[in-house]
Structures are given as structure tokens and as C-alpha cells.
Design a protein around this nucleic acid. Structure first.
Lengths: 221, 221
DNA sequence: ACAAAAGTGTTGTTACTACACCCATGG
DNA sequence: CCATGGGTGTAGTAACAACACTTTTGT
């Protein structure tokens, strides 16, 4: 059997999330090129011959946010024949979590605009990006419950209340403070850094940091 | 920005599992083509311009096993630059579960041989297929615990003991009969068909069938 | 009558939920 | 001294784990 003469291109798209203003937000770019001029989409592009899709996703992430060392992984490959009107392009979608602080979004010539959007108030997206975002959100909600990935949404030192808010925003329901702290404490994912928050008009909170700032599965001992 | 001139091919590989002789087995083919002559691998091939990767995986599954209507889904895309010595080929790996009964493996000209292998006694595989199989196994172990996918490993009518054995073989640990039955009963995934098994030298067992023979997430009410 | 798997409940332990008040700070 | 979020324990309930004997069939 001979190899069929394929005419298929491989792209990478990246769903990049952060927590900002007490809501879960996603980074969208506004497109220039036809037929999606003015449309919003998640950032992406064709992969180069010598890079892996993860390399490519990292490149997108760094180009847009300037960040490295955050959580980033493959999501799923989207390959419907009609997903790109310009021809057969399959997209190996990735997703990432970035901390809010210190981020300065970078505009490139490629796009008309770049900004964060509340995931509950998204515009209609280009291509099949609605679907990609939907799957990424589902993965986030699921994976936050059995891994330590929240580390990638928080500063190195944070309070227990900040941590709880991240869970509440992503999972969409309020949690009991005492029960939350008990559970977190049992998981042994974080440790106190021995400092307290300052400057707020209330009792200072103890600061914690993650033991590992990379993917780790929670052992339910 | 212009589209780079890509020289990347898209393949699909399929990890196909069954339960046979009280063990978890995977379908491997023996290759003919260089440099993997005689090596074993999971079945796969290039996708065609007009088919999705899922179509392609379905084609592979049907070609090898003659089956349709079983559980099949995308696993992950493998795209290391060096995974195929013949050039840059990314593989959108899929995985499937098939029932043991009624399967007659089909040999094609493409391969030297096809047979089932116990997943605990695998030979060294071609390409990065060791890695693909490892990921597929992890997904199976995980997904069997919060979905109804076992339906795809069993005949339409089965006994509770058969069902329990499938879980025990995949998860690798013995389970308590009474607790298992309580749990299964609570999940409401199966229903009695009103018949009993016959022919064995012991008390006949009640037969059950799945309410749905397609992917369903278990609601832990 | 014996071998072999089917079927069936209870009890103790552990994990989870609900819930309210005092504390430390800044303004 | 007031407003704001920080920090802490207990009791009731629900889920889970461990465990053994009787039943029905084929040979």
C-alpha cells in the first residue's frame, strides 16, 4: 500500500485561561484575515516542520503573554473537514493556565486586537473555537479536582481565601471555608511560607505556596 | 504572515482492547515494511484527505475486527519529530474496546500477522507505540471508573460475576462481591433481562444488560 | 452427595456536611 | 470603634469496607 498524497495542514490553537476580576477569563485575539476579519478566536497558527505541537503552543503562549513555566498541555485534536474554510487544516488544541499578575498582553501584527474575555460572556468565535473552548473548560473543571494545577493560576505566595476563590470561580459554587481548609490541608499540596499578608484593613492572612509548581496528581491516601 | 510550507503527514493508530482468557489483551499487527520488518505495532495508517481521524480509526477497527458499534474515541496526538524514521508523521491515536465473542481477526496483505497480546506481556513495539499503549491503558483504567464503557467489552447479556471480573482484570485488584453488587445496583447502569444462565454445574446466574450501549457518565447522585 | 459459583445483610469505621463566633488589622 | 476578612471545632449523617453462610444446579 502506498502512502496517499495528503493535502492536510497541521495547526495548533491555545485556550489560555486566567482568573481576573473574580472571574474566569480566556485570552482571545481579533482576527485580520478573511473570512474571519473582526472575528474573535483563540490564538493559533500552523506548526513548523521542526517543532512539536507542544513547542508550537509554547511559542504562542510566550508570544501573547510573555510567560513561561506555566501549566500547558495538549487538549484534543479537532479535525472536522469543514472547520477551516480555507482548506483541510487539523488543529491540535492545547490549553494553559496563567496567573493574573504581571501579565502584559502583547499585540502582534498578525492580529487586530488581543484581550481577556469572561468565559461566560464570550462572542461567537471563528472556526470551531466555540467547541475547543467548551472542551477546554470541561477539562479545567475536571482536572482542578484531582490535580494541583491551580498553582498555575496563583502567585507564588497566596492566602487560603485566594485559593478557595479560584476553586469557587472555576467550579461555580460557593464552598464552606472550614471544610475547604480541612480538605486542602489533608492533601498536603501546599505549605505555609511563614509570612503574613499586609496592608489590608483586616486581620493579616497566612501565606502559603505550592510544594510543586508542576503537574501532580492528588493522592487520596 | 504566510503559511509555512509544511511537510508533515497525519496518521491514525488504534489501540484496540478486549478481555480474553481472563486477561486484558491488545490487538497487534506484525509489520512488513522497513525498518520495522517483523516488529509488532498497533494497527494504523495515513488518513485520507476526505475523512476525519475518527472515520479513519473506524476504518482500521472494522478492517481488523469486522466490528462496528463499539466504544471508540480519540486518545491523544503523538508528534515527536523522531517518532517515524521515514519522515515527519504525527499520529492522532485512538483507542477502542471490543467484546471477545464473535471476533474473527482479519489478516490483510498489509501485515505479516495479526493477533491478541496480553498487555502484561508485550514485545517491544515499533515507533512510539509503547508510549501510545501506556497512555491508552491509563485512560482505560481511569475511564472505567466514572463511565459505563465496560458495555463494550461484554456481550449484550452478562452476569454480575462476568462484569465484576472485567473490573478486576482491568484495575488489577480483587473486589468484594457484595460491595461490588451494591455499587453497581446504585448506579442504575444495567437492568435484569429476566433470564438466567444455563449449562454450568452450579446455580444459574441472573442475566443483565446495559441500559445504554454508548458512552455515558456515571452520575454519582 | 459433592463441587462450584450465585446470591444475600449487618456492623464498624471513615469521610463529609452543616454550622457560628472571636481575632487582628486599617481607617 | 467600626468594618473587613482571618481563623478555628464539633456533632450528625452518609458512604464505604469487612465479613460468612445458604442456594441451586450439573455431574
Amino acid at each position: 500500500m502506498t502512502t496517499p498524497n495528503q493535502n492536510i495542514k497541521v495547526a495548533v490553537d491555545a485556550a489560555i485561561f486566567t482568573i481576573k476580576n473574580d472571574s474566569l477569563q480566556i485570552l482571545l485575539i481579533q482576527m485580520k484575515k478573511n473570512p474571519f476579519t473582526e472575528s474573535w478566536a483563540i490564538p493559533g497558527g500552523m506548526i513548523q516542520n521542526d517543532e512539536t505541537t507542544l513547542d508550537s503552543a509554547l511559542r504562542i503562549l510566550t508570544t501573547q503573554t510573555g510567560l513561561r513555566g506555566v501549566f500547558l498541555e495538549q487538549l484534543k485534536t479537532f479535525d472536522d473537514q469543514t472547520r477551516d474554510p480555507a482548506g483541510r487544516v487539523i488543529s491540535v488544541a492545547h490549553w494553559a493556565l496563567v496567573p493574573d499578575h504581571d501579565i502584559q498582553l502583547k499585540t502582534t501584527e498578525k492580529y487586530a486586537d488581543v484581550r481577556w474575555w469572561n468565559v461566560n460572556k464570550l462572542p461567537k468565535l471563528a472556526y470551531d473555537h466555540d467547541l475547543i473552548v467548551k472542551e477546554a473548560l470541561a477539562r479545567l473543571k475536571s482536572k482542578i479536582q484531582y490535580t494541583n494545577i491551580v498553582w498555575s493560576l496563583l502567585p507564588v505566595e497566596f492566602t487560603l481565601t485566594q485559593l478557595q476563590h479560584v476553586y469557587e470561580i472555576i467550579l461555580g459554587n460557593a464552598m464552606d471555608k472550614r471544610n475547604f481548609r480541612k480538605r486542602i490541608s489533608d492533601l498536603k499540596l501546599i505549605r505555609p511560607v511563614g509570612k503574613k499578608s499586609t496592608g489590608a484593613a483586616h486581620r493579616p492572612a497566612e501565606l502559603f505556596s505550592f510544594r510543586q509548581r508542576k503537574l501532580d496528581y492528588v493522592e487520596i491516601v
